[in-house]
Design a protein around this nucleic acid. Structure first.
Lengths: 313, 313
DNA sequence: ATGAGGGCATAAGCTGGATTTATGAGTGGC
DNA sequence: GCCACTCATAAATCCAGCTTATGCCCTCAT
C-alpha cells in the first residue's frame, strides 16, 4: 500500500493539480448534455440548473481549457470540432465516475440490500463496477451490496448465508460451492519501458522467468498461486507487496519485472507506463468463476447479475 | 451529433446528478496521495493544502459515500478495506482525467508548440491522449499541439508544413506521404444486448451482414471505407450519422446493429451496453499508420512520439 | 518519566465560485 | 408583427472549502 511511485497519475511526476486543469464532473456532465441536446437551455434543464448557470459554466470551462467548445447561435448550440474531441474525452471521465458511483453505492448499501455479492479483489476492482452499472440499467431498483475479500472469505460469506452470489479467481472452486466460469484472465509479464527485457526480440522462456526475481503479491494471493503452479512453485520474489496497486507502482518505477493480471494493467499498457514481455511455453491463464452454495442456484437478482457477467470471453 | 440516447452515462437513465454522488477530482487526488503516503498531513502538503483542509475533505468524502475510507491513528492513516477498493476505482477516474488534460493541453497549445500533430478522429479520441501522457512523462517540456480531421485533412496539414507528424486510419496511404503501421484496429459487429443477434449461436456470415441495414457513419468515413471494401461496396445503411458517438448512442438505444471500431466500443462492451456479434468469413481489420511527408523522416520530438506509439500490436 | 515530534480533530473567520432571479437582445416561423 | 426559442449580462445570495490557531493523543528518545 505504500511503496514509492513515479506514476504520472499519482501526482508526483505531473505538475500536481490536475483538479485545477480539468473541469469538474458537473461541468463535464453538462457538456455531454449540451452535445446530446443541442442547446444550453435544455441541457441546463436536464441537469437541474438554470440556463444562465449553464451558460456561465460552459463559458468558464472554455476559459479554463483555452478552447472554444460550442458554437452558440440563436437557434441552439453545436459543438466545435475541438469541442467534439473534448466531449469524447470527457465522456471517458464520466464513465469512470459512473462506475465509481455504482461501486460506492454497493459498498454503502450493506444493510437492506436485495442482492449481496462477495467478490475477490481483482474482480471487485476491475469488473464488478461495470456489471453493477449494467444491472442498474436493467433493474434500477435493485439495491446491491458488495464485500471484497479473498477466495476463502468469499466462500465463508456464501456458506454462512451472508452473501447471495460470489466471484472468485483462484485455481480451484472452494468446497461446498457450485461454480460456473464467467471469464478468463491472463497473467502477463510486464516491466517499465526502460527495462532491458523491453528490448528483447525473442519471447521469454519459462525457465528465464522462473530464474528472475520478480515483484509479486504476497504468497497466498490468487495471482501468486497461479504463477507458482505454472512455474512449479518456483517463482522468486524480488519484493513482496500486499496490494496489486503497490506492485504496479513498483513495476512502473522500474524496480523490476512483475507478473500481473491483464485486467490490472490495461491503463498502464495503454499509456506505456508498462510494457508486456512476450512469454512462451507457459499458459498463465486463470478462470474467473461465479460461485454459490451447492444446490442453491442463483435466483432473482443474483440470476440477473450472473446473466450479465457472461460476457465476451 | 444529436441522436437520442438512453446510455447510462449520458444521464437520462441514471437519476441524474453523478456529480453529487462522486467526490470531485481534488478529493480523489487527495485520497490517492493519502493511500500512497500513509498520512493525511503529508498528502495535504503534497497536494498544496493544509492538514485540516485535507482532514475535512476526506471526512466529507466519507460522509458523502457513507463508507469509512481511512483508519486514522496517531501514527498515520491507512486505507480501510473498502477504502482500498474505492481508491482503485478513484484511480481510474483520475487516469481518465489525466488523459483529458493531456489532450486538452494539446488543443490549447496550438501556437508555440515544438511538435504539431495531426490525427484522424478515432486515433485522436482513443489513442493519442495516452501517447501524449507517455510523452509528457519522458519529455515534460515538449509542448504538443493537436489537430484532428479526416485523412485528407491530415495529409494536407503535413504537406503544407503545418504539422510534423500525422496519424491516419484509412486503407491507403495518402499520396506524398511515407508511413509506418503502428497498430491494428478491428471493426466489430455490435448490437444492444436485447437484439435477436445477441442470442445467436452461430457466427454471422458476411452475406447476412451485407444484407442487413446497419447504423453507420456517413460514406467517406474511415470506418465505412473499410467495411464497404470488405463487403464489396454493399453495406446497407439503416441510418447514417456523422459521428462515432452518435452511432454508438443509436446502437445502444437498440435502433439496430452497427459496425464500429473495437477501440470505440471498449467501454460499452465492458458495461454490457453493447455486445459483440461474432462474424466469420470477413477480415474487418485495418491498419493505423503514422505518416509524414515523403523523405522527411521524423526527428526530435516527432521521432520520440513515434517511438512511443509502437505499442503491443 | 518526561519532553519533543508527528499525526489528527475541532473551531472560527474569510473568500471565492457557482447559483438564482430578472432582464435584454437576436433570430426564425406563422 | 408577434410569439417562441435561443443565449448573454447584471446583481444579489449562498455555501463549500480554505487557512489560522489551537488541543489532544501517541511514540520514541533521552
Amino acid at each position: 500500500m505504500s511503496g514509492d511511485t513515479a506514476g504520472a497519475v499519482d501526482g508526483s511526476t505531473t505538475g500536481a493539480g490536475l483538479a485545477h486543469r480539468v473541469p469538474d464532473l458537473g461541468a463535464l456532465e453538462l457538456l455531454l448534455a449540451v452535445a446530446r441536446l443541442g442547446s444550453l437551455g435544455r441541457a441546463a434543464r436536464e441537469t437541474g440548473i438554470t440556463q444562465p448557470a449553464a451558460s456561465s459554466r460552459i463559458r468558464s470551462m472554455e476559459r479554463q481549457l483555452g478552447v472554444a467548445l460550442v458554437d452558440r447561435s440563436p437557434r441552439g448550440s453545436r459543438l466545435t470540432d475541438a469541442g467534439a474531441l473534448v466531449t469524447d474525452w470527457a465522456r471517458r471521465i464520466v464513465e469512470a465516475a459512473a462506475a465509481f458511483d455504482a461501486g460506492a453505492q454497493a459498498l454503502r448499501d450493506r444493510r437492506d440490500s436485495r442482492l449481496r455479492v462477495a467478490a475477490s479483489m481483482t474482480i471487485a476492482e476491475y469488473l464488478l463496477p461495470n456489471w453493477l452499472l449494467a444491472l442498474r440499467a436493467e433493474r434500477p431498483d435493485t439495491a446491491v451490496s458488495l464485500h471484497a475479500g479473498n477466495s476463502a472469505a468469499v466462500a465463508e460469506r456464501l456458506l454462512s448465508g451472508d452473501a447471495d452470489l460470489g466471484f472468485v479467481e483462484g485455481l480451484a472452486v472452494p468446497a461446498g460451492l457450485d461454480a460456473t466460469v464467467i471469464a478468463h484472465d491472463r497473467l502477463i509479464v510486464v516491466t517499465a519501458p526502460g527495462h532491458p527485457w523491453a528490448r528483447r526480440r525473442k519471447p521469454l522462456s519459462a525457465d528465464e522467468l522462473a530464474a528472475t526475481p520478480l515483484i509479486l503479491r504476497e504468497r497466498g494471493s490468487g495471482t501468486r498461486q497461479v504463477l507458482d503452479a505454472a512455474l512449479g512453485g518456483l517463482a522468486r520474489p524480488l519484493i513482496e507487496l500486499s496490494s496489486t496497486t503497490a506492485v504496479k507502482a513498483a513495476a512502473v518505477s522500474g524496480a523490476g519485472p512483475s507478473v500481473l493480471s491483464e485486467l490490472a494493467v490495461g491503463e498502464e499498457l495503454a499509456a506505456r507506463r508498462l510494457v508486456e514481455i512476450p512469454l512462451e511455453g507457459v499458459r498463465l491463464r486463470r478462470d474467473l468463476r461465479a460461485v454459490w452454495p451447492t444446490g442453491h442456484r442463483p435466483v432473482g437478482p443474483a440470476r440477473e447479475l450472473l446473466a450479465l457477467t457472461r460476457g465476451p470471453a
